[in-house]
């Protein structure tokens, strides 16, 4: 037991717990509240905290991408669309029957995922000391631009299609 505490009070563990607090608590707030303003603001902390996990997993590149894409683009897009709509039409609680049944479905997932899937499985690579690949960005650039360039083309085409589709959809009809 004493060994457990000694192992778990290290900077890595403490930062992991702090990040988990920053991620999970606002996510719960954003689900529990019926005010979408509060939900969107608390989602900011969740997305920002998730980038901390990527730093702990030695991928600073994805951490920066997470901040740029999720906080800078997706959340701002959600807030902007929220501003375009009228606030009073968003209000309104769901039925109590729906709330109770969805709570039980979520509880089932909450029990099923940690205790039936994660703890029962044995992962082969666990607890091994891993050599850190310190040239992630370089390898990724070589992979995306030379070896597997079709992936990048498909992603670009998908983004262009989504852009054209979205702007066609909300075009004003005459």
């Amino acid at each position: 037991m004493n060994n457990f505490f000694v192992n778990h009070i290290s900077p890595q563990y403490l930062s992991f717990y702090l990040i988990s607090l920053i991620v999970i608590l606002p996510a719960l707030v954003s689900v529990m509240t019926s005010d979408i303003k509060i939900a969107l603001v608390s989602l900011f902390f969740t997305f920002f905290g998730i980038s901390g996990y990527y730093v702990l997993l030695y991928s600073e590149f994805l951490a920066i991408t997470q901040v740029v894409v999720y906080v800078g683009a997706i959340l701002i897009l959600l807030i902007f669309a929220f501003l375009l709509l009228d606030l009073k039409f968003l209000k309104g609680e769901s039925k109590i029957k729906q709330k109770i049944s969805s709570f039980f479905v979520a509880l089932m997932f909450f029990i099923f995922i940690p205790f039936c899937m994660i703890l029962k499985s044995t992962w082969s690579g666990e607890n091994k000391v891993i050599n850190k690949p310190n040239d992630i960005v370089e390898s990724m650039g070589a992979l995306l631009l030379i070896d597997e360039f079709i992936l990048l083309e498909v992603a670009g085409a998908l983004l262009l299609l989504a852009l054209i589709g979205a702007s066609l959809m909300i075009k004003r009809e005459k």
Binding site: V23, I24, A27, V31, Y53, F109, M117
Partner: peptide, 8 residues
Amino acid sequence: VSGILATI
């Protein structure tokens, strides 16, 4: 953590 986030 990812399981909890998915549940939420």
